[in-house]
Design a protein around this nucleic acid. Structure first.
Lengths: 177, 177
DNA sequence: CACGTATTTCACACATTTCTGAAGTGATTT
DNA sequence: AAATCACTTCAGAAATGTGTGAAATACGTG
């Protein structure tokens, strides 16, 4: 048992709030940001809604709303162990970062569509319309690049793990979740 | 002169609001989003604060705050024509998309720092800490990939322009703004 | 089928954000 | 040097967002 369980919990909570604050800067709502940060940083693999509420010291209602968002975004998966009556929430480990960027990709796609619609409304034969056309091209380019980058991540991850295990100790690369 | 100047303005304003709404989903505040969308979609190359206020039908104060943000982000440049007393705001054309993604890169960097700090606080020898380590690696990777992608854009833009001008008419590629 | 638990929904209080009008600041022109 | 114009700052009203407690619902067990 740690020197002080309470101190650890407090430090964790403070850190979760700090992490959540950065997440919120990207447009994520406070409570989903907190739940995500908590689920990532705390040690459990699965959390019941009760765990999350107790861990974050917030109401069950707040958790309900937050996990709904996170599950919708694919960052959290809802599971159910037979013989229990509470849902379990799990970070969708392997696909986690694909999902995370997936949200960005969706935004980029909506942006692209909106700009394309603007070209129709404004007309491409005018300065504004021409700027919109270039904007759309850029978003399309960026979206493709981002998608490619994400698809390269698993290989890169393995490469990093291999490099580390050989430079520190000869130990097979381990998965984190 | 268009059939109806008013109808065009209304359509533009409606579109600006729609565009701004998508921008806001990425965490940009309403008024900066509107000013950016307006400056991009309307036909002028430069706008005075008065132009923006009149065009968007909002107060001068609102413009003041919005352009401050946009200038800080580097999306808008402030200029001053000698012999006039009003500032001119210009979309920082050539670097525009570099800047746009630059904001994302900054967020990614803050995220990376925050996660790295978390590894210290939590300890990398625990499940939560190990997840944070992988998270940091991913953000570092993504940041690099994104920076690379942006640096490839100018060449890609020219390639697109060249392909288009040869497939439609034999005309030198034109710049949009 | 009734009970007990987990989860969701809802109305409300609280906090934050957003934009405006008015006052204040700085600079150029007359 | 006074007046005028552009811009910024500030306080406050309105709108929006956030999280809680309580009631309602769903679900699995005995």
């Amino acid at each position: 048992m740690p020197v002080s369980e309470d101190a650890d919990r407090t430090a964790l909570l403070r850190y979760v709030e700090r992490f959540a604050l950065v997440l919120r800067a990207s447009g994520i709502a406070p409570m989903p940001a907190r739940v995500f940060a908590f689920a990532l940083a705390d040690d459990a693999d699965r959390y019941t809604a009760g765990d999350l509420a107790a861990g974050l010291q917030v109401s069950a209602a707040a958790i309900s709303g937050a996990v709904r968002q996170l599950v919708q975004w694919g960052l959290l998966a809802r599971e159910r162990e037979p013989g229990t009556r509470s849902d379990l929430y799990v970070l969708d480990d392997h696909n986690l970062w694909t999902r995370f960027v997936g949200a960005e990709l969706d935004t980029l796609e909506r942006l692209e569509e909106t700009v394309a619609a603007g070209m129709e409304i404004i007309g491409v034969d005018r300065p504004g319309g021409r700027r919109l056309a270039e904007t759309r091209d850029f978003f399309a380019f960026l979206r493709q690049e981002l998608a490619d980058a994400v698809s390269r991540w698993p290989a890169e991850r393995d490469r990093l793990a291999a490099a580390r295990s050989s430079s520190t100790r000869a130990r097979p690369a381990g998965r984190s979740g």
